[in-house]
Design a protein around this nucleic acid. Sequence first.
DNA 1: GACGCTTATGTTAGCGCTAACATTTTTAGA
DNA 2: TCTAAAAATGTTAGCGCTAACATAAGCGTC
Lengths: 342, 342
Amino acid sequence: MQGQKSRASFRRRTTMADVARDVGVSAITVSRALRNPETVSEPVRERITEACRRLGYVPSRVASALASARSKTISVLIPSLTNIVFVEVVAGIKQILDALDYQMLIGITGYEDQMAEERLLMQHLEYAPDGILLTGIDQSETVIRLLGDFSVPAVHMMDSSERADCSWVGFSNTDAGAIAGRHLLETGRRHIAIVAAQLDPRSTRRCDGCRDVLQAAGHYDPALDIRVPHSSSIPLGAELVQKLLREHEACDAVYFCNDDLAHGALFWCSQNGVAVPERLAVVGFHDFSASAWTPPPLTTIETPRQEIGREAARLLMARIEDPGQPARQIDLGARLIRRASS
Amino acid sequence: MQGQKSRASFRRRTTMADVARDVGVSAITVSRALRNPETVSEPVRERITEACRRLGYVPSRVASALASARSKTISVLIPSLTNIVFVEVVAGIKQILDALDYQMLIGITGYEDQMAEERLLMQHLEYAPDGILLTGIDQSETVIRLLGDFSVPAVHMMDSSERADCSWVGFSNTDAGAIAGRHLLETGRRHIAIVAAQLDPRSTRRCDGCRDVLQAAGHYDPALDIRVPHSSSIPLGAELVQKLLREHEACDAVYFCNDDLAHGALFWCSQNGVAVPERLAVVGFHDFSASAWTPPPLTTIETPRQEIGREAARLLMARIEDPGQPARQIDLGARLIRRASS
DNA sequence: GACGCTTATGTTAGCGCTAACATTTTTAGA
DNA sequence: TCTAAAAATGTTAGCGCTAACATAAGCGTC
């Protein structure tokens, strides 16, 4: 317990000054040896490295962040941690951040109103993140203004936009929905239901994209456009398909805006003698790992979620390095995976 | 662009001193008004609150952390972000932290060796976390020593231990495996396979628990104890069950140490005419949400993952508040969910 | 009305590090 | 050999906040 300090109750941590004293150089030299090794002569650098190890020195990021105005931290705001879709995005982000020695703070917006996102952003600004990754492109004016006021670079994920003044990495949800609609029309379906849950701007756009295609072909039936606010799940999919078939006998296809709804529908159909795709074609969205194995395997729209996370993180890092850089937009697309359910 | 500061290129953020100057008090009074409102007289407090809002003041956690030696941050070390099991634990943790205004840094150990965990811990110590949540109880001596040296309270999750000197929240993987083994024996199975992937100490313990029960009953066959290092997935489950049935005709039951393996097995069986449970009983582990819907629904061991996250976070917070507190152990148990697959 | 006692606010210093500039030492070039 | 440039290291100050210790103001009390 030597080296006890009055302020805190625990053993005082070894500081850069301790290492400097040990080696016989100034603190800034230690700082340089650790951050820009090439600016320190080799013999000194080696003695510093050795002393760090010997003394068990662990640098303080907190002090570093305060002194340098660089926290080496970014905030990631996603709607949910239990939805595997966003977790995969986060996993992609983390891959890139780990390599660049950045940390990530996660904020959960919870599919709530824009006010909630503003509050969450303000909380995260307290941590002085060097950048922010946001889900979707429908942030409020306040959010945009806050980001500007605090000069925090931001990249939006999982959607697309025409605006040239914001950076995003994602795909067009509208186009992706349209792909599903076209596919069902092309396979001869004429009574196509659109079923969505967990209504956020992105799933709404996916539905609208599909609807527009059906409408243009003259096969849109509003009674088959079912959007419920509940959160997306397997049981909900089972429940909704059951209701749909009971109330709309003519319905011969369903586009679900999430694979888990589609899985629920497929399980229910296989357990209740509804032939898929003969009686009912099913298309999902996101291509979850189980979708290749459901009875029957699910036709769905694949979205490059990890890749979106990685690219968004790369883009954000580039903008942190060089804040003058113009906004960039990266459309990674979404594509139809055709399997036996349609 | 008024208020430009020389050091950083962006607009200088409003500080506590700015607010203090505006209101005509000292900085410490502003600090108190924000952290311990009851220690500041009402009129002053109101003027401060108003000035904060008007000036768009956002406190700096970085400065606060440095000055107070409390980062209001904890580190959570988990093996993987793509495995839903750990994400659910994290979701539980986050619930508690949000309410207490703590943030979480996530570290991914990647099922790797203990050295990797040590390196990761050292990295996280740079952020001066107020506490750490670890997965499993098999950390190396170095990890334990580091935590002691830096006086960082730790709570282990997802497993149990006899040791009274460490805090954990979880369940006995050994017992959980034993439950599966007993269940299969009780339903008359005599050629029970144990199949595991992603071998970490916890899944190994789950297998060993099952093995010991089979052994005690005289029905353990080492040839049916199959443990592969690959990561757990649906396709792997399908592949392994196929191989198993081909090579061991007598086998009449399988215990999988993860539900996704079991799902793969069930899908393969249903697509290849293997009757479950008549020809082959299947038991999984973790009770994923899809397990109630597979063909047939899967018998599995339910583990309270969100609850483990919540309780672990609560326990950690209690130990941060009062470091003198003795270590506590909370066994939340694991229980058999019997469905049609056995 | 001087005494303690509480409540409200202020002063000072410093958390551990790094930016900016200053200085010294080395190296290269004419 | 001298000079200029480059490389290596140091000095100073301060990031924005809070702990610890003043101090001042209110308030009853004998």
